[in-house]
Each structure stands twice: as C-alpha cells, then as structure tokens.
C-alpha cells in the first residue's frame, strides 16, 4: 500500500517536472543569460525539489512553486557571477575595443540585438516579460511565480514593453 502510494507520488512528480522543465530553463536563461549557468540552476532546483516531492505534488500550483525556486536560484547565481566578474575585471585589463569582428557580426544579427537590448532591463522586468510574452501566463500566475504583487507585474510589463520599443526605435532595427 505504501509502495503504491510512493509510486503514485513519483509518477505525479515526474509528470510535473517533465511539463515544466523547459519553462524553468528558459526563465533561468533569461535571468543569468548563460546556457551553462541556466542548466546548473535548473539542476539545483530539481535536486532540491526531489527532496520535497511529497509536498510538491500536493500543492495547488506546483509549476508556480518551481518557477519561484528557479527565480531565487537564478538571482543568487547572477549575484555571485557579478562578484566573480568584478574580481576578474580587477585582475584583467578591460577590453575597450568594441569593434572586434565577433562583435560587429553579432551586432548585425537583429534578433541577437533584441536579446541584448532585453538584457539591459532589470532582472525583475525581464522575468515578467519572459513569463508573459514567452510562456503566455496570466498576471495572477506571474505574481505567484515571482513573489510580486499583481500591480508590480503590470507595472514591470508596461515598463518593459515600452523600454524595448524605445530601444528598438533608438537602435533603428526594423526587420528580423
């Protein structure tokens, strides 16, 4: 009987993770902006969630819980990466030449350029934009997943959309 119950929990937990894993990765990637770091964030979240699988399967909205955890982990990573980067910048001379061949080629890629514009926004705005524009989530769901109020979600979304449009106009990017 206990074995059957554990098996049900495991099946339920596995199906939740399968359905949400890509979303967790995309959110982590939006925050940390590095594929390896994002993968590590998701790995950490999955390892931690495994220990709490009994509670997770009983939650009303397990994906919101997992997204929230991903957000926290990703922001922690971002902070430690910033500390690392600051130390590395101190140790190595900064690169003042912005016209390297790689950078010129990258700047010509329109969608890549939109990505870079987006990364200029604060992490909270990026997350809200990601969850609305990419994941197609309702305001209430975004609020639950980010620990923000509904009003904050609407404000960040409004600001984020306006900022992206302003940057697109400023950079004069017209075609994808």
């Amino acid at each position: 009987m206990i074995g059957a119950n554990a098996s049900t929990i495991l099946d339920h937990y596995s199906s939740i993770i399968t359905s949400v894993r890509d979303r967790l990765y995309r959110l982590a990637l939006r925050v940390v902006n590095d594929a390896d770091e994002a993968e590590d964030v998701v790995q950490d979240v999955l390892v931690k969630s495994w220990g709490q699988r009994d509670e997770i399967v009983r939650l009303d909205n397990p994906p919101a819980w997992l997204l929230r955890m991903t957000k926290h982990q990703a922001i922690d990573r971002l902070r430690s990466a910033k500390v690392r980067s600051a130390r590395e910048t101190e140790a190595a001379a900064s690169d003042h030449d912005v016209r390297t061949p790689y950078r010129i080629a990258a700047a010509n890629d329109t969608l890549g350029h939109v990505h870079r514009l987006l990364q200029q926004l604060p992490p909270a705005q990026r997350m809200v934009l990601q969850l609305r524009e990419v994941e197609g989530m309702e305001y209430q769901e975004i609020a639950e997943a980010t620990d923000l109020t509904m009003q904050q979600v609407k404000t960040y979304l409004h600001r984020g959309r306006h900022k992206i449009r302003a940057l697109l106009l400023k950079e004069k990017i017209s075609q994808p």
């Binding site: 329109t110 969608l111 350029h113 939109v114 990505h115 987006l118 992206i164 449009r165 697109l168 106009l169 990017i173 017209s174 075609q175 994808p176």
Partner: peptide, 8 residues
C-alpha cells in the same frame, strides 16, 4: 518597427 520584438 515592432517586427523584431514579436519575432524575438
């Protein structure tokens, strides 16, 4: 002008 944003 909004093409790239939606494409992105």
């Amino acid at each position: 002008e909004l093409n790239p944003m939606f494409a992105y």
